[in-house]
Computed example of a mutant assay.
Amino acid sequence: MDGRWWIGVGAVVAAGAAAVVLAAVAAGRRLPVEHVTEGGLELSQPPGAVWDVLTDIDLYPAWRPGLSHVERLPAGVGGRPRWREYGRHGHATFEVVESEAPHRLVTGVADPDLPWGGTWTLVLTPAGRGCSLTVTERGEVYQPFYRAVSHYGPGESAGVRRYLAALAHRMA
């Protein structure tokens, strides 16, 4: 086959890829920047034991898949704990926004350069000898392409589902 045929195939593939990206950007522009998603989990451990796992930042890589290591950072405003998580998609900085041990923890993205942001509110409620955990993500996805990929791909609740599954495995 002649080289022009391969150039033509390459041009068609490139045009198709560009069309997919443009369609995703257009779809993402129609989606809201903000979303709220929630998930829950029943655990056999009391709130204090679960709280210890949720707040032990140094041990996150031991139970959260995809997280290679965590770096503690200098405290933020008001002495709030801050840390940077490293994983297969890069790194992100987080901080504790609110903490009422052992019942309510709010963490937030503290990295303005990311294409996403928001907070996670974790609420532990005693239930018999164990507790129930509710995680509420109030997220923002700033770039339309990422918004479309998140919405039409795994869904906005994918992060909460992965987190709860990893925690359930850790607490088993």
Rank of each mutant, 00 (worst) to 15 (best):
M1K: 00
M1I: 00
D2T: 06
G3P: 09
W5L: 01
W5E: 00
W5N: 00
A14L: 13
V25M: 04
G28S: 12
G28W: 04
G28F: 05
R30H: 15
V33P: 00
V33E: 10
G39C: 12
G39Y: 13
G40A: 10
G40Q: 10
S44D: 10
V50K: 05
W51H: 14
V53K: 03
L54Y: 13
I57W: 14
L59C: 13
A62P: 02
S68N: 06
H69R: 15
V70C: 12
V70T: 15
E71L: 12
G76S: 09
G78K: 04
W83R: 06
G87N: 05
R88W: 02
G90I: 11
H91Q: 03
A92N: 00
T93L: 01
S99H: 07
A101W: 11
R104M: 08
L105G: 08
G108P: 03
G108M: 03
A110W: 00
D111R: 08
W116G: 00
T121C: 02
T125G: 10
R129C: 00
G130L: 06
G130R: 02
S132A: 10
S132M: 13
S132V: 12
L133A: 07
V135I: 12
G139N: 09
Y142A: 12
Y146I: 07
Y152A: 11
R161H: 11
H169N: 08
R170A: 12
M171V: 10
A172N: 08
